[in-house]
Design a binder for these strands. Structure first.
Length: 570
RNA sequence: CGGCGAUUAGCGCAGUUUGGUAGCGCACUUGGUUUGGGUCCAAGGGGUCGCAGGUUCAAAUCCUGCAUCGCCGACCA
């Protein structure tokens, strides 16, 4: 491709409204343009990268035995009503009507459509297992789209769905997908980790997320320092402390703390260690008779509540709903800044780490007062102990080996064993070997294709621009002729090399613009082309050109006739 | 949905406090100059100042409403 015939679209200045580096670079390198919130046009350079990612995903899915299909983006509402998600999905599901006033949705995912297909097409266990995938545009009406294509409303996803007559068979395909995903992200040149994940609203038993490690990632991941264990912090277990609770040494005493509204106030004004404080959070729940009630959750002052863990406790509303200040006042008689387990008349669930404290400090359920020297059993009941908090750096690893380290990741893939949730709702069944109708076990496997492009840039860039891994670079090589418009020799060598490289199968960008050298260098570095050949009068007397790799500052002078074989050998 | 902020040329911004008929840099066009790291000089094109209403002799500027966009939070395969 010649730059004079190409839409390069590079920007010298950083666009406003682009927060993360991948978003900035995608705009500056001319890969995408914003159309509306969370909606982007992929311009030629961006589309080339996107297609390369798609192709790798497609090849590895096919190699793992999945069959490619293409389902519609617009889906009839009745399928969603059948699965129950018409009600459950909420405002993220964009609903629309056609000219006959029939209701449709813009597909955020395709479990319903695939179930509809499979229940019609597959009728015998002999046709199973089957794994079908597509690479399709999805639409999710995100509350807050951000970070460019990283969290957009319209995005491209590879989604696969597998169907089985037994859990053992599902597990086998699940493992095959796990392995395929590992190959895909390896081929893409990404530093990634599979992590144990929450199954979330989609349900099911077993789930892994694949995360590209990057400081800008939206998810926190807990790793073991000594094993392969990795889990999303949402899910990672905070192991119960092995040391038993110390004996009480202090008397319970109530002190006036008029200016204390938060744990930080308490720590700074009364000289107590934050680890010796306890905070109490009030959430909505139901009692044994299913009646609405409030539940108190107690965690150590320096820890933070894990809402997913809390919501999984029986009798706690899921998703978690915090009590309002008015509700707390009505139930306890004190404001949120003065709550504590002593004398509290609500069901109280204590976090494992809070449960081993002694002589601790907590609110007195009386505005402006705290209890000091509090001890469990003696001063407050501690009957229910659960894992309620996020793990923190230095905790013992849940796997039993090493301690926890926290890193940030961008979720680029997610695989689930769904079981029969959808096939029960959608009646996806076949006749099994004994001639009985059986609902199918199902797995689903997603990869955020467009998100991968952004994630790759987060991981591979410097202050000059993008540094594409070989596999996803928009062009493999670029030719930069110095003052070609003044030098017949330079033009001739550049044109010849351009033809030769193309003939040898390289995707090459030939910068034939009448631009100053600095402009060309800056643009090619911004776009991130991995290999650059510079042709200038300076070296032509020796019939030589100069090679540089994007990921190195080293300049290599080489004879013109060696260029093709040199690049082939890389 | 709550809090905060923004909206002036294709992009990045100044001008708004104190009302007086719109400016800078980049990009673009033309001519010259320069030529291995975003040259320099000159000339030029491009704006219903987000929209609607109001105040005023006069509104980018003051007032009211709305829209769009972004940040933080809540939410989310």
């Amino acid at each position: 491709m010649r730059t004079t015939q190409y839409l390069l679209g590079t920007l010298k200045e950083n666009p406003a409204n682009a927060e993360v580096v991948s978003h900035q670079l995608m705009l500056r390198a001319g890969m995408v343009r914003r159309v509306a919130a969370g909606l982007y046009t992929w311009t030629p350079t961006g589309l080339k990268v996107l297609r390369k990612v798609e192709q790798i995903v497609r090849e590895e899915m096919a190699a793992a035995g999945a069959l490619e299909i293409l389902m519609p983006m617009v889906q009839p509402a009745d399928l969603w009503q059948e699965s129950g998600r018409w009600e459950d999905y909420g405002p993220e599901l964009l609903r629309l009507k056609d000219r006959h006033q029939r209701e449709f949705v813009l597909g955020p995912t395709h479990e319903e459509v695939i179930s509809e297909l499979v229940r019609k097409e597959i009728s015998s266990y002999k046709q199973l297992p089957m794994n079908l995938f597509q690479i399709q545009t999805k639409f999710r009406d995100e509350i807050r789209p951000r970070f460019g294509v990283m969290r957009s409303r319209e995005f491209i996803m590879k989604d696969a769905y597998s169907f089985h007559t037994s859990d053992a068979c599902l597990e086998k395909t699940y493992q095959a997908m796990y392995d395929a995903y590992t190959r895909i992200f390896t081929r893409l040149g990404l530093n990634f980790r599979p992590v144990i994940a929450d199954t979330g609203s989609i349900g099911g038993d077993m789930s892994h997320e694949f995360h590209v490690l990057a400081s800008s990632g939206e998810d926190a991941i807990a790793f073991s320092t000594e094993s392969d264990y990795a889990a999303n912090v949402e899910l990672a277990e905070a192991v119960a402390p092995s040391t038993p609770r110390d004996e009480a040494t202090q008397e319970l005493n109530k002190q006036a703390t008029p200016n204390v509204k938060t744990i930080d106030d308490l720590v700074s004004q009364f000289n107590v260690a934050i680890e010796q404080t306890v905070k109490t959070l009030i959430v909505h729940g139901t009692d044994d008779h299913g009646e609405p009630t409030l539940v108190a959750l107690v965690i150590r002052g320096d820890h933070s509540l894990n809402e997913i863990k809390a919501a999984k406790i029986k009798g706690v509303l899921s998703p978690l709903v915090f009590a309002t200040e008015e509700e707390i006042q009505a139930a306890v008689g004190a404001g949120p800044g003065s709550l504590g387990p002593v004398g509290l008349k609500l069901r109280t669930i204590v976090d494992r780490s809070a449960a081993v404290l002694s002589d601790f400090v907590t609110g007195a359920n009386d505005d402006g007062y705290h209890y000091f020297g509090v001890n469990w059993e003696r001063d407050a009941a501690c009957t229910e102990v659960e894992d309620l908090r996020d793990v923190v750096e230095g905790d013992p690893s849940p796997c039993g080996k090493g301690t926890v380290r926290i890193a940030r990741g961008i979720e680029v893939g997610h695989i689930f064993q769904l079981g029969t949730t959808y096939s029960d709702a959608m009646k996806v069944s076949v006749l099994n070997e004994s001639g009985k109708s059986q609902n199918l076990a199902m797995g689903c496997y997603g990869i955020g294709v467009s998100r991968i492009v952004a994630a790759a840039i987060e991981q591979h860039h410097d202050d000059k621009g993008i540094i594409w891994p070989e596999a996803t670079a928009p062009f493999q090589v670029c030719i930069l002729p110095m003052n070609m418009h003044k030098s017949v020799r330079v033009k001739e060598v550049a044109e010849n090399l351009y033809s030769e490289l193309q003939a040898a199968g390289f995707d090459v960008l030939f910068d034939d613009r009448k631009e100053r050298p600095g402009v060309m260098f800056a643009d090619m570095e911004l776009v991130g082309v991995p290999h650059t050949i510079v042709i200038g009068e300076r070296n032509l007397d020796e019939k030589a050109v100069e090679y540089t790799a994007r990921n190195s500052s080293e300049k290599v002078k080489m004879p013109i006739e060696d260029v093709v074989s040199y690049l082939k050998g890389l």
